[in-house]
């Protein structure tokens, strides 16, 4: 038992599960952004020809799952679990996708941290010997998030500079005991932290303390430091959040420097009018399953610490005056002998 745990919050996978197939899919705005070349499939119509964006989101998610399975050369029947989460009420995108896939389903909610929560849980299941192969996936959509968390799309609202733009798309990964691909060697599951941020315009600020806490916890648990990683990736802190995150980490005596990259801050180009940057479950997922995995295959990275952050609140809690809590999970992904 003890050898599988390190410190307070970190788990070590002895038979590190491999990402044997993964796929990302996103809309035209993401395609035009800085990470466009790393996205596997780009769609022209964010509505996918569907009458509602909710149906489109679910279709994107299903497509990403099918693409990931195809890349792993496996079928639905080969998967023992499907772990999925998204931003919509009652995680309906994942649930309906699970209905269509027919794989035993574990629904999770970690807001925008869902992909790392899914990869971490999937790795736990595979390493624990409870499954040979697990599918982990997530989705988000600009239009579905806006209407659920903010305002109707055509409403006359001028976005503030700290606002973030929800990434439209989906991402999926097949984790397996055997096969070839990057390995997930460790996971650090984070605590929920709340520093009293109340404005939904400041999501990056609400999540930064959790990200810093999980990162410092990971370093303390494993005895590693920023120098041990080729890249430290955060999901969707965006311009404001990442500034705070770096500051908080510095206060704990870790300097990240050029090792750190935040997907939210880089996914869109400045001229794309997206406030402080990207957000949403798929933001971090494109960073991890698109950028990191592809660059590992190119040999640019060998050991990456990937964090994804989530803002835990609902429109109801927010209107009732509750502050926005944050969470962050981390996984260590290693290329090794790909």
């Amino acid at each position: 038992m003890t050898s599988k745990r390190l410190g307070l919050q970190t788990v070590v996978f002895q038979e590190a599960p491999r990402i044997i197939g993964c796929s990302t899919i996103a809309g035209p705005k993401e395609g035009d952004g800085n990470l466009g070349p790393y996205i596997d499939t780009l769609v022209d119509d964010p509505l996918m020809g569907q009458p509602t964006p909710e149906k489109a989101e679910r279709m994107l998610l299903y497509q990403a799952c099918q693409d990931a399975l195809a890349k792993a050369a496996l079928k639905e029947d080969d998967m023992q679990f499907f772990i999925g989460g998204d931003l919509l009420n009652q995680i309906i995108s994942s649930s309906y996708c699970a209905r269509d896939l027919g794989i035993p389903f574990l629904g999770i909610y970690g807001a925008c941290s869902s992909i790392v929560e899914g990869l971490g849980l999937g790795a736990l299941i595979v390493d624990g010997g409870y499954a040979d192969s697990v599918l982990a996936a997530t989705s988000s959509h600009y239009q579905t998030s806006e209407r659920q968390f903010r305002y109707p799309i055509e409403l006359n609202v001028q976005h503030k500079k700290s606002n973030q733009w929800t990434v439209t798309g989906a991402a999926a990964a097949v984790l397996s005991r055997t096969g070839a691909g990057p390995r997930i060697t460790m996971a650090t599951f984070g605590r929920v932290l709340d520093y009293g941020i109340k404005s939904p315009n400041d999501m990056g600020a609400a999540m930064a303390p959790a990200a810093a806490d999980t990162l410092c916890r990971h370093f303390a648990d494993t005895g590693t430091s920023p120098g041990d990683y080729d890249l430290i990736l955060t999901g969707d802190l965006a311009a404001v959040g990442q500034k705070l995150f770096v500051q908080l980490v510095k206060e704990a005596d870790y300097t990240l420097g050029s090792k750190h990259m935040d997907v939210g801050a880089v996914i869109y180009k400045p001229e794309q009018r997206s406030g402080a940057g990207g957000s949403g479950c798929v933001c971090s997922a494109i960073g991890i399953l698109g950028y990191v995995v592809k660059e590992m295959h190119n040999g640019r990275f060998d050991r990456v610490l990937a964090l994804a952050t989530g803002a835990l609140f609902s429109p109801v809690s927010n209107q009732q005056g509750d502050s926005i809590a944050g969470i962050a999970h981390a996984v260590v992904i290693e290329g090794g002998n790909l």
């Binding site: 500079k161 600020a205 705070l244």
Partner: peptide, 22 residues
Amino acid sequence: DQHTRYQQMVKEATPQPNRWKN
């Protein structure tokens, strides 16, 4: 105190709107 201090940090990190232009 920690919350107050953090909120100060957030205030400093948040970009100011371009008030004159707006």
